[in-house]
Amino acid sequence: MGTTGNTESEPAWTGLPRGLLRMRRLLLVVWLVPLTLATGLPLGLLVGPGWAAFALLPLALLLWGWPMLGRNWRSWRYAERADDLLISRGVLWREETIVPYGRMQLVEVTSGPVERHFGLASVQLHTAAAATDARIPGLVPAEAERLRDRLTELGEARSAGL
């Protein structure tokens, strides 16, 4: 993985590991398949088969969500440049954030129980501005820790006051 391949025009982007997509799709299935069954079966058996069509709603959501998660996952990427970190994300609502290393107040690595089960961790950057929304979700823990250490190191080297 290129860390500071810093050509002026196009930075070296890094995507997210596939584990995040797997986790999100699994969560989608885990929530929506039982919901489909829970809507469809009682309505179909007790009220009438026509009413069971309501079960199509969660099913449609599932079928629509599957590729959407893939699109969203593909859109997330980040790049470590010489002086700042770039994060780009979103398909319909696109957002691109640049945080200079010298501005970082603290770097956080978090991992919830579900994330931990899938061997994933998020890195969150905090600057003095609360509006700075610089989060990279779903990294492999080793990469998250490498990123944290590197960001902290660069942040110290380039540290500036407010």
Binding site: E96, R103, T127
Partner: peptide
């Protein structure tokens, strides 16, 4: 310029259609 903490660009679907951000 010295006081900028971070820079962000945002673009929604309609804004993208109209090529603004």
């Amino acid at each position: 310029h010295a006081k900028v903490q971070s820079v962000r660009m945002e673009q929604g679907p309609w804004a993208r259609f109209k090529r603004v951000a």
